[in-house]
Simulated scan of single mutants.
Amino acid sequence: MIRAIVVLLLLALAGCTSRGVSYDKEVDDLGAHIVSDLKALPTVSDAAYRYDHGVDLGQHLRIRAILRQESVSPDNVQQSIELAVKEFWLSPASVGHLTVAVYSSANPPVGDDDAKNTDRAIGSENIEDSAAFDRPEMERKYGPRPSRR
């Protein structure tokens, strides 16, 4: 009986990973690409990403950009957010959720958790590829997403 339960649990977990909740190199590469492009902006002093995945999370990419203190302006905050959002949307990587947080080098985030740094963020965006959430707006702005692999 216990053996049957263990086998069923293993099969269930194997089924979950086939639905895209396991590590996906293409999503990881997308995060690295966005960070590289952000760091190439003269207004950005640093950038980083975190790729979360799993049964409870699905595929979630978190991008962090830190603007040089002298470059902080609404236009530069928006430019950083737009760069990340556009690259996310136009990528065929199988990731349905993007969070972007922008900070000033004068008041940088503490630790790795942007949720604990919302009072320090000078701009943020949360995009979910869902017809009920952000897909209609993103499709108007950038066109349909490429087919996911």
Rank of each mutant, 00 (worst) to 15 (best):
residue 1 M to L: 06
residue 1 M to R: 09
residue 4 A to W: 03
residue 6 V to Y: 10
residue 7 V to T: 15
residue 7 V to C: 10
residue 9 L to V: 12
residue 9 L to S: 09
residue 12 A to V: 10
residue 12 A to M: 08
residue 13 L to D: 04
residue 15 G to W: 06
residue 19 R to F: 09
residue 19 R to L: 15
residue 20 G to S: 07
residue 24 D to G: 02
residue 24 D to Y: 04
residue 27 V to I: 09
residue 27 V to W: 09
residue 27 V to H: 05
residue 28 D to C: 05
residue 30 L to P: 04
residue 32 A to H: 07
residue 33 H to I: 01
residue 34 I to Y: 12
residue 34 I to C: 11
residue 39 K to V: 03
residue 39 K to C: 06
residue 41 L to I: 05
residue 42 P to V: 00
residue 45 S to V: 06
residue 45 S to C: 08
residue 45 S to G: 12
residue 46 D to W: 01
residue 47 A to H: 05
residue 50 R to P: 01
residue 52 D to Y: 04
residue 52 D to A: 07
residue 52 D to S: 12
residue 53 H to G: 06
residue 56 D to P: 00
residue 56 D to T: 10
residue 57 L to P: 00
residue 58 G to S: 11
residue 61 L to A: 07
residue 61 L to P: 09
residue 63 I to R: 05
residue 63 I to Y: 01
residue 63 I to G: 07
residue 64 R to S: 05
residue 67 L to Y: 03
residue 67 L to T: 01
residue 71 S to T: 03
residue 73 S to F: 03
residue 73 S to A: 09
residue 73 S to L: 04
residue 74 P to I: 00
residue 75 D to P: 02
residue 77 V to K: 04
residue 78 Q to F: 03
residue 79 Q to V: 03
residue 80 S to V: 09
residue 82 E to Q: 14
residue 82 E to P: 05
residue 82 E to A: 15
residue 85 V to N: 07
residue 86 K to I: 02
residue 88 F to H: 11
residue 88 F to N: 10
residue 89 W to R: 12
residue 91 S to A: 15
residue 92 P to Q: 14
residue 92 P to G: 15
residue 93 A to H: 08
residue 93 A to Q: 07
residue 94 S to D: 13
residue 94 S to C: 09
residue 95 V to M: 07
residue 95 V to E: 02
residue 97 H to Q: 14
residue 97 H to L: 04
residue 98 L to C: 12
residue 99 T to C: 01
residue 99 T to F: 11
residue 99 T to Y: 08
residue 101 A to K: 01
residue 102 V to Y: 00
residue 102 V to W: 03
residue 103 Y to E: 05
residue 106 A to Y: 00
residue 109 P to N: 08
residue 111 G to W: 01
residue 112 D to F: 05
residue 114 D to K: 02
residue 114 D to P: 06
residue 114 D to C: 01
residue 117 N to E: 06
residue 117 N to M: 01
residue 117 N to F: 04
residue 120 R to F: 09
residue 120 R to G: 04
residue 122 I to H: 08
residue 123 G to K: 10
residue 124 S to L: 08
residue 126 N to G: 01
residue 126 N to E: 15
residue 127 I to L: 11
residue 128 E to N: 02
residue 129 D to S: 09
residue 129 D to P: 00
residue 129 D to W: 13
residue 130 S to A: 12
residue 132 A to D: 13
residue 132 A to F: 13
residue 134 D to L: 13
residue 135 R to S: 15
residue 135 R to I: 03
residue 136 P to G: 07
residue 138 M to T: 10
residue 139 E to C: 07
residue 139 E to N: 11
residue 140 R to T: 08
residue 140 R to L: 14
residue 142 Y to R: 00
residue 142 Y to W: 14
residue 144 P to N: 12
residue 144 P to E: 06
residue 146 P to R: 06
residue 146 P to F: 11
residue 149 R to W: 06
